[in-house]
Every structure is written in C-alpha cells, then in structure tokens.
Amino acid sequence: MSEQEHDTGGASRRKFIGAAAAAGGMAVIAPGIHLIEVSQANAPTRPPGEAASNLVRWGMLIDTNKCTAGCDDCVKACATENNINEKVADVRQGSQWIRKIEVKEAKGGHTFSLPMMCQHCAEPPCVDVCPTGASMKRADGIVLVDRHSCIGCRYCMMACPYKARSFVHQPLTGQNPEVPRGQGCVESCNFCVTRIDKGQLPACVESCAKAGHHAMIFGDLNDPSSEIARRIAQTATTQIRADLRLDLGVRYQGI
C-alpha cells in the first residue's frame, strides 16, 4: 500500500469515524431536541409498553375571556379526530364529547361562552358507579371508558354531573383505529389520549390555537414549570360544581 493510498485510507477512516461520531452524537442529542419540542407542548411522549405515571396529572385550562360565542372549532376538531360523523335524525341521540355552552348571569346579564367536556375528575363518579370497571381513571388522571368491557348500562351517564358522556345509539362504520368506538357503549372525551401519548396536544386545544383564540391550554398540573400550572398559580380559576369536591382536571378562567 502506497503512502498516498495509506493517506487516502486514513482520510476515509477518519471520515467514517467522524460520521459515526456525528451519528452517535445525534442519537444522544436527538431525544433532547425532541424533549425541548414536547416541553413546549407539555406532553412528553410515552413509549409503548410503559405505564402512565401518577407523577403526571394532565389538565386543561380554558380561558372564557378568549372563547368566542358561536365558535365551535374545538367541537369540529374533536369530531374529526375521533370520527364522530354518524348521522342521527335526533341530535340528542348523537355523541357529544365536547359541546359549547353559552352562559348568562341571570341578574347582571354578564355572558360568556365555554366548551364543556369530561372534566377528568380525580374522584370520578362515573368510575365509582361502573359495575364492570370499564369506566376508569388512568394513573395520569385521564378518565376514559374501555370500549371493550362497557356493557352499556348508562349508570355513568346518570352519575356524571357534567352530562359529559354519550351512549352510542347506532352501528358505526369507518372508525379511527386509534379511537375505538362502538354501538351500545358509553363514551366521552379522553383528552385525545393517543395523541397525548405521542407527545401531541388534544385536537380541541390545537384547533383553538390554530384559530388564534388560544383559549385552551393543556399540560401537566403536577409540573410547576408547565404553563398550565403557572397560570393556575397566578390567576383565579374555577372548577365547575366545585361544591361536589371532585378535584377536576379541567379549570376555567373568567367565570
């Protein structure tokens, strides 16, 4: 082997080592970059197979001062995300994972608008009353229904103080495989649990931000550095029907 060849070989070896080092470095740094991204969303990815942690308490803050009456972007985004597109002749028989409520103070006349959905109680009455354990609370505070063990008794609907649960009245087709729904089962907002596990925001929150309202903030209530925790620490927020002491995951501002 000539010296030139040797040099060339050495250069190529050095290139290889450099590339390998860069790739290794990226492998080490990349999750860090990803963490920085998700820290803005307040939703770190949960790897498959890893149990939800009770160190996290997912929550939502809704600023009614920024929520516009008549705007239902969040409702539409929820329907799209979860494939709630079935046609029902009677709207009351359709699923309502999230709905807009217009509220008016009876005497003073002050009005505000807000989205209402499952409030993800820490002490959820729906979980208490469920005879099969289909209604459950995840360690990270998300309340959801196991569509495969729900028998459709509707006791959870009776127990929910927020009318947040719906019963599927008819056969469904063309579902989102990540959001299984089914005729004869009860369902409700699950904070877009599969999106959260992927480090994304719930569809309603994302759509609200996209529309420029920024009325909904999602994040970890247990993390003092999260935006939601800071806002709740600084501003007066309300839990709806706080008298029931259910310790809600959803807070409202401006009520």
Binding site: V129, C130, T132, I151, C153, G182, Q183, G184
Partner: peptide
Amino acid sequence: LGRADRLIIAMTHFNPTSVFGWNV
C-alpha cells in the same frame, strides 16, 4: 343494556363502590 352480550363481565368483575356492583 347496550351490550347485553357482555353480561358476563358484570358478573365476573366486582366494583365495591358501584351500587350496580352490589346488586350483582
């Protein structure tokens, strides 16, 4: 029931905080 075919789940799962559970 919405899913009467799943009655066996109610009979094999006991939730002590559910009045329906007591009734089972």
